[in-house]
Write a protein that binds this DNA or RNA. Structure first.
Lengths: 108, 108
DNA sequence: AATATTAATCGTAATATTGCAATATAACAA
DNA sequence: TTGTTATATTGCAATATTACGATTAATATT
């Protein structure tokens, strides 16, 4: 049915899933990696860098912004994007908690 | 068009996106968390634990198995699932590299 | 052999995602 | 004001995902 039954899961499980969804498209990974490397950039830079249409990049930026993973500040005619360091640190902790939780591994 | 342009991105970016996709549904997060907690379990356990239909859980398990995040061993009439510790360790490294890459944060 | 248990697969419906052309909006420059 | 540049939004088509009932396959149990 294409609809996730959010109510069956814990808040934390839904949060991990939502964050992971942000990382689940290579264009968004590329945008985030670029921002991590160059600190700040504008939409036009990413269009050149990644090679998708302007509208597409804009949409991906919007999703990242909605999750507060990045922030955009108006700077003349363009918008300057950067990682939101506070959120990013939170995400780092959340993923470390989740993925780092492997203890024993006596498989069946 | 609903089709991701994989060729525009690096192998690493596509890999992160694929792994993140595995984590991008709360049912799969729940399955993985449960396996991390109890070490091993069978499909039926997860159906009870999570409350989705057997076919649905089975499908999610298949996706996790395709990415080699988990492994399933036949044991009588049931299949015993567990985390694949080797892959899991790899994933831990990959996500640490990606998310842990924040250095300065002089935003715009 | 007949029946029960367990899980995978198939088929289908509902919904979500991806990508882009076209258009709209906003800020500046001449 | 007019034109230019930069970005966002809208609308749509193509594709992917999610969920589950029904069926199938395989092994146990009686």
């Amino acid at each position: 049915m294409g609809i996730t039954k959010t109510d069956k899961f814990t808040k934390q499980q839904n949060e991990i899933a939502n964050l992971a969804k942000a990382f689940s498209h290579p264009a968004r990974v590329a945008i985030l990696e670029h921002l991590l490397n160059v600190n700040t950039c504008i939409n036009g830079d990413l269009v050149k860098e990644i090679g998708l249409a302007q509208a597409t990049i804009s949409q991906h930026l919007k999703e990242l912004k909605n999750l507060e993973l990045i922030q955009g500040n108006i700077s003349g005619t363009s918008v300057c994007y950067c990682i939101n360091p506070i959120k990013w640190t939170e995400v780092n902790i959340i993923f470390n908690e989740f993925i780092g939780k492997l203890k024993m591994n006596n498989c069946c």
